[in-house]
Amino acid sequence: MSVDSTADGSTDTPTEPVYVDGEADLDEIVAENDVVLTDFYADWCGPCQMLEPVVESLAEETPAAVAKVDVDANQMLASSYGVRGVPTLVLFADGEQVEEIVGVQGEDQLRSLIERYAE
């Protein structure tokens, strides 16, 4: 049985990044949210650390849910999405993968990308 993050059972978009452990976790987040920005990262990755405050503010300030996937702990999941380098950002809208961006991106660029799908 899964537990909703809110007491009333609603699926409000999380305002901070959600750490994903495995494909079922990611599938659930994608199913419960209209727009999901997934950050495939590694703890040892310098550019990933630079991107961290950006994805945190996007989680807080945009209608998108932000999922974080540690590629070292979730190698099969990263492989299934074709992640070859980190950071890789995968954007889902209405349950479908719509964008994939490799490397550090500016907050404004990511914000406008999310808003394009969040309408």
Score class of each variant (00 low, 15 high):
Glu61Val: 04
Gly22Ser: 06
Asp108Val: 12
Phe92Glu: 00
Asp43Thr: 15
Ile101Lys: 14
Val36Ser: 06
Gly22Arg: 01
Ser112Tyr: 09
Met50Ile: 13
Phe40Arg: 02
Val36Phe: 03
Leu77Cys: 10
Ser2Cys: 05
Leu37Ala: 01
Thr11Asp: 12
Ala65Asp: 05
Val35Lys: 00
Arg84Gln: 13
Phe92Asn: 04
Glu28Ser: 13
Val20Cys: 02
Val90Asn: 05
Lys68Gln: 11
Ser5Glu: 12
Glu115Met: 15
Glu100His: 07
Phe40Thr: 08
Asp8Gly: 07
Pro53Gln: 01
Ser5Leu: 14
Arg84Ile: 10
Val86Phe: 09
Leu91Asn: 09
Val71Pro: 09
Asn33Phe: 04
Ile29Glu: 11
Leu113Lys: 05
Leu37His: 07
Cys48Glu: 03
Val66Gln: 01
Met76Val: 15
Met1Val: 12
Val102Asp: 01
Ala31Thr: 15
Gly106Val: 08
Pro47Gln: 06
Val69Asp: 05
Val54Thr: 15
Glu23Leu: 08
Val66Glu: 05
Asp94Lys: 10
Gln105Met: 08
Leu58Asp: 09
Gly82Asn: 04
Gln109Ser: 14
Ile114His: 00
Met1Lys: 07
Asp72Asn: 13
Thr38Trp: 00
Cys48Phe: 08
Asp70Asn: 15
Glu16Ala: 14
Val20His: 07
Val83Pro: 03
Glu32Met: 09
Gly103Asn: 06
Gly46Pro: 10
Glu61Gln: 13
Gln97Asp: 05
Pro17Glu: 10
Asp108Thr: 13
Glu60Leu: 08
Glu115Leu: 14
Val83Phe: 05
Leu113His: 04
Tyr41His: 14
Gln105Tyr: 09
Ser57Val: 13
Val71Arg: 03
Pro47Ile: 09
Gly103Val: 10
Met50Gly: 05
Asp34Pro: 06
Val102Asn: 04
Glu28Phe: 04
Ser2Lys: 09
Arg116Gln: 14
Ile101Leu: 14
Ser2Phe: 10
Leu113Asn: 03
Asp21Glu: 14
Gly95Phe: 00
Glu28Thr: 15
Asp27Met: 05
Asp70Tyr: 07
Val98Trp: 01
Leu77Met: 10
Asn74Ala: 07
Gly9Arg: 08
Val36Lys: 03
Glu115Tyr: 13
Thr38Gln: 05
Val20Met: 13
Ala78Leu: 10
Ala118Arg: 02
Val30Arg: 01
Ala42Glu: 10
Leu89Arg: 03
Gly82Pro: 02
Gly9Ala: 03
Pro63Cys: 02
